[in-house]
Design a protein around this nucleic acid. Sequence first.
RNA 1: GCCGACGUGGCGGAAUUGGUAGACGCGCUGGAUUCAAAAUCCAGUUCCCGCAAGGGAGUGAGGGUUCGAUUCCCUCCGUCGGUACCA
Length: 1020
Amino acid sequence: MINSECFVINHSPLIIHHYKMEYKPREIEKKWKGWWVENQVYKVSNPDSDRDSKPKFYVLDMFPYPSGSGLHVGHPLGYIASDIYARFKRMKGFNVLHPMGYDAFGLPAEQYAIQTGVHPAKSTADNIARYRAQLDNLGFSFDWSREVQTSDPKYYKWTQWIFLQLFNHWYDQKADKARPIADLVSIFEKEGNTNVQAAHSQDENFTTEEWKAMDAKAQSDVLMNYRLAYRKTTYVWWCEELGTVLANDEVKDGFSERGGHPVERKPMLQWSLRITAYAQRLLDGLQTVDFSEAMKKMQGNWIGRSEGALMRFNLAPDSLPPAPSKGGGDGTQPPSVGRGAELPPTEGGCVPSPSPLGRVGEGLSVFTTRPDTIFGATFMVLAPEHDLVKEITTPGQADEIKKYLAYVNTRSERDRMSETKEVSGAFTGAYALNPFNGAKIPIWIAEYVLKDYGTGAIMAVPADDERDRRFAEKFGLEIIEIIDKSMYPGASIEDKKGKMINSDFLNGMEVKDAIEAVLQKIEEMGIGKRQVNFRLRDAIYSRQRYWGEPFPIVYDEQGVAHALPENELPLELPELDDFRPATGAKAPLARATDWVNLPNGWKRETDTMPGFAGSSWYFLRYMDAHNEEEFASQKALNYWQDVDLYVGGTEHAVGHLMYSRFWHKFLYDKGLVPTSEPYKKLLNQGMIQGVVESMYLLKEKKDGYSKFVCAKMAKKIGITDYVNIPVLVDYVVNYGSPDSYLNIDAIKKFMDWRPEYKDAIFECSKGVFHKGEFTPKGDATDSHLFTFSEVGKMSKSKYNVINPDDVVEQYGADTFRMYEMFLGPIEQAKPWDTKGINGVAGFLRKMWALFFDKNGNFNVSDAAPTKEELKTLHTCIKKVQDDIERFSFNTCVSGFMICVNDLRSKNCNKRAILEPLVKLVAPFAPHIAEELWHRLGHETTVCLADYPVFEESHLVEDSVTYPVCINGKKRDSLTCPANASKEDLEKMALELESTQKWIDGKTVRKVIVVPGRMINVVVG
RNA sequence: GCCGACGUGGCGGAAUUGGUAGACGCGCUGGAUUCAAAAUCCAGUUCCCGCAAGGGAGUGAGGGUUCGAUUCCCUCCGUCGGUACCA
């Protein structure tokens, strides 16, 4: 290579010029990537003193999970955007933190280990190496010296540490913050728990004496009900296939989000995080952050706040079972103390399992958002699993209830979710009493009431609730109209509008007023209280897996959980060679008996933490990634504060984002972080989809051969007889278009790729291909087997994954980066398509060519720029910097194109113009910019050069061209001095020949002149 | 069902506060260069009528506000995303 260059330099001037002039991204990019690393261009320091002048800016990408299939072209979209933004801010004089790392614990590596025996640590390391190479290939400006990996014990030491902090805290609702558990113990010692307002799952009240009388185990059990990280038997989603429990947000429509395996509801003893304690603050915080409306809505819905009332209904005496011999409890719990008719001090929604309000003597409690409709409550409905069901069912109805419960038992979660139209239920025989008028209200049970929400029981108001109405109609229950909506035509049944009727003291009130009135009355009478309910559930935190953070928890002989002392952190994962689940829903760690069983007879927790553990705080670690004393120093935390720009996909809306906001607020309560929200601005990049091409394969073999039929023929015959077989998109001619097809050549490639179809028949309207021979129909010469193309996820299983490395190999990283930005608005989903990439590649070549003369020599002039050239440059500066600030990267690229086209037509090669242009381009195409920058004579990096300063004066024109419109439609234009008065403009516009033509025979009614914009003549 | 986003040429998309609709790029057409092709360069390219000058229509559909609407309001249709017996 070097020799041949010498040769051409000596002997062939023509090729010399070619060599010098040609833009060769491969060479340039390799050179500068190396140079940047050598010179540590992207390394960021934490300032040594407060005097350090640069303001900070933190640009963060969402943590990637390094999957085995590597990056595809969709992944870098957000990274490119954030990289451009980070580079831009650096040049604007900010100290920019722009780190990257890996969410390295996770299920796929473990499943791979089960299949292949390769240790997850090994496969994860391999995948990370591959990711790193792919990322490096794109020229990102990450400070890799701050890299973190969640599976690194130096990192998860602090994940464990934060978990212990959660374990050692409870949520004080009066102070509205987390407090040490020791504070709670001293409160219990002084006054028991009756006055404690906490987020908790403690059913029983106790006094000082009772607390002191408890043994260690009992006290520990009580404290568990208050801890922010707690262990409790609750109904959880169990996934048999994955051998683990999952959190709510990891389950969709009855299937696991990862892998799509069925899940079931099961009561199990699990660790959970009391995120519900923070429900209100998580909701309120949304108003202080710059997230998209859609994102805020999604999180808001997930939290699901509703205001209403908790109301207690007495049971009709005749529906009480005879002589309650059980003494007010079911025998497993102590009798309730000092409660009487009083309601427990629970803030609702924080109780993950059915609430304790299930004993007969206490009546029946319901949560309702419409207490005003009480006079229309003609029946009550309990969830089939409600504790009270077996106690109140009358002998006469016992059979029916039994039958219904049996039916409910046969129904999976999936059934219950899919069939929501069909109502079902059964009558218990018991009645509740309306506290206002003493009316007897029959109590039913039905599937549509969920045990998990509110109290697991509702008062049904068929007149004002769609579901209740359906139920009442089906079972012939009474419907009492209670709201006159006649003055609100178009109001739906559940709108909170109208005047109360048939409602005693509420009659004549507007709904809004009635709600307030009845709430006051309820509180006066002591039969209920205002209550806020949340849909948000506590987060299940245990996973029965190997590849995750071990819990720093040990159990004594009584099963009491003890935190490991801090100096024993990190608790490292033991080595294991069998990663399959142990028997009895036990995690694989249970096999490591030496590790589990401690010399003193205590045992370690064998579950591990979920994926969201490590990713809930990683952005803090980047601020001080190698600190061994703290998760990050206060100094670093106070300097970097929070993430200014967070870029990632919407798929993390309710998982990662909610959990990390929760952890952050907890750390904020502890005074460990300076801000109450971790992310100031969130930018969601849209998914880049792939084209999925498939063929129609006849379900039944024909004469013993598989048979593929052209998509158009298959549709005519009826596609139900066929299955879709995906085809590697590369083989398909015109893939992604309606005219996507396979010719003979493509069919051969397909057969090589899928040998099981080498004897298959391929039929289309042009002919039949079988065993290497094409039998044409008519005079056709080639096959035209239409394939079915659709837009879908880019994934291995669809054979449509495009590796960015391949695109970079062909066009270079700079072109790839700019092209991804040029595809369209960053937030929009779009299918990958290389149709336009040549345009972007051509642009970079044209820009490059500006710096060279006809003979191919680098040639930049020091002549003074013209007014026009300065205008071109400053138009570009303004456009690009404004558009970067509003994350409109696609229009930046077109701004560059306009600028370069313009300079080309002006034959401009002036340093005063080209040098600022190089700086403008640098965030987008850093390699070519660095090359040109150095050719311009600089020795330091363009990445840290000062951003060009926009000057308005260069855009000021002496004259302005106005569009002249007649009745709003442009008919002509008028160029006149920029300082022309409104009157002059009006006069000139009316004098135009074309205007005269249009107003001929009509009257000019009005002339509108918008200075600098347009002129409109209204005629009629 | 509910919530949210979106709907603009053959295609990706632009129009930032209500002010020239279609920037920029792809594709396509014609031309230059070439033995030829690729590459490159130049010109054209919303649709309809017209040789042209010119005219008409036009931002999913229909209506409204306005001198003027892709932009604001109402109704409807379609696509995508979220969510679902949440009391």
